[in-house]
Design a protein around this nucleic acid. Structure first.
Lengths: 115, 115
DNA sequence: CGCATACTCAACCTAGTAGTTAATCAACTA
DNA sequence: TAGTTGATTAACTACTAGGTTGAGTATGCG
């Protein structure tokens, strides 16, 4: 598996179950059982998903007696948006410049239209 | 494979090779050979990566004689950031409220500290 | 036409993922 | 101490991802 931070983050986000878990955690910390409850899936499967999220740094887990409360961590999300924004902006700027070029050409052509 | 739009997008972004390809395309359109050039990997492997990116809607491909120029499409990136932002904001707001609660409690305690 | 270039498709291999059930660990509770 | 609850670990299955090589397709050019 590819294990650089950004790849771990996007891999973790690539599964709908894991995204739903994060969505739930955005509302507040929760235990494994609470997180598993909405899904038609074994507790062990959820436990595995949590491991993926933990490895990506998207959640941290405490210990409260026999419970393992999960907490959402947003730092990796920040890095993910930063990466996306960077290239989205470059692409947008490039299109803007292209647009300006086209307009410049159109203006020049108009200027020559007087004969 | 999970094939909803968001999963396709994040899956596509989860590979460093594919992110590098997108980074390259942010600077302008390119052919398959041009995209493959920096990588120590067969052209066929790159072709597969491009298929993944295309399926996610992150690139579109034209035809110019025997070349298949690739173009970056940013719409799926917008959706991806929207998703991330949504939950990042919910989490931040929750922490802000929590912070206010703590401050309120601290103020109350201070008020009772006069005996 | 014959051949080079640009690329895709098909078959295969290896490793990893997502799920299962069964067993185990850890902590509270009667 | 025995039993219960919460959660992890282990072993297994089925499938997918990412890479390879080799053959095939499409276009341009002499």
């Amino acid at each position: 598996m590819v294990d650089d931070q950004l790849s771990l983050t996007f891999t973790a986000l690539a599964d709908p179950t894991r995204r739903a878990i994060l969505a739930r955690l955005a509302d507040g910390d929760a235990t494994v059982n609470e997180l598993a409850e909405p899904f038609d899936m074994s507790l062990q499967a959820i436990s595995k998903h949590l491991k993926v999220l933990e490895r990506a740094g998207l959640i941290t887990r405490g210990r409260d007696a026999q419970w393992r409360p999960c907490r959402l961590e947003t730092a990796p999300l920040d890095d993910a948006t930063d990466w996306i924004e960077q290239y989205r902006n470059i692409a947008r700027d490039r299109l803007d410049r292209l647009d300006q070029e086209i307009q410049k050409i159109q203006r020049t052509r108009k200027g020559n239209d007087h004969e």
